[in-house]
Design a protein around this nucleic acid. Structure first.
Lengths: 114, 114
DNA sequence: CAATATTATAAGCATATGATTATATACCGT
DNA sequence: ACGGTATATAATCATATGCTTATAATATTG
């Protein structure tokens, strides 16, 4: 089976980098590297308002760096980024924030159990 | 000899990505991948004003993605980006624009001969 | 030193960005 | 269908960004 990987244009390339050009969104990607998370969990960990998180996720989603799925009342985000050749390199270079997720679980606020 | 590579913080990481989050600056990086260039050559190739190019290069320089050296009356820019772990991956994924530089040479407007 | 060429900086302006508050939409349990 | 929880969108606002024009700074040449 032949897979055609569509070449990214300048516009899309710039959009991907812009999407990764914000500290909050970088932290979100770093968190999603460890585990898929829903919006309210990101809100809890990052200490941001819910609309702020939603809007950041929209930006990441429109750059195709994350994808979403609905699970009950939650919308769960996960890393995507197959279209961006160096996305894995970027994500790998992000600090490990798994301890944040551990802390969330310890506090009993982890809501989604896959 | 032990080389210590200073870990980049969120702030710097975001700045690097922001610096790469613009079509013009991506093109500049793509051009510098082929060959070191001075400002007036970038002006010629990209069809931008000289101040616009200078300001973009300042942004790239402050993110440490390019470095400059003076050669006579010209300031020559070249890729740097050793501090950004995935910089090479990004640059490698940029389209090849060497034909732009060839065209410049053919037109007799390549000013710097190293 | 004067004249020219190259590059950088400053100021102004239109648009983009990121946050906040308020409101709408979607799903769940009863 | 209703109330509660989760998420998205809209409106607003302060700041950032990118471009333009004008001007300054630096280097070369005569």
């Amino acid at each position: 089976m032949l897979m055609i990987v569509q070449e990214l244009g300048w516009e899309e390339l710039a959009e991907c980098n812009k999407a990764m050009g914000d500290q909050s969104r970088l932290r979100m990607l770093a968190l999603l590297k460890t585990e898929d998370l829903c919006v309210c969990e990101l809100v809890e960990i990052l200490g941001m308002t819910q609309p702020a998180v939603s809007q950041h996720m929209r930006r990441l989603k429109s750059a195709k760096l994350v994808k979403e799925r609905r699970q009950g009342q939650w919308v769960i985000y996960s890393l995507d980024g197959e279209r961006l050749p160096y996305f894995r390199s970027v994500v790998d270079s992000l600090p490990d924030l798994s301890y944040e997720i551990e802390a969330l679980k310890a506090s009993g606020k982890k809501v989604v159990c896959d």
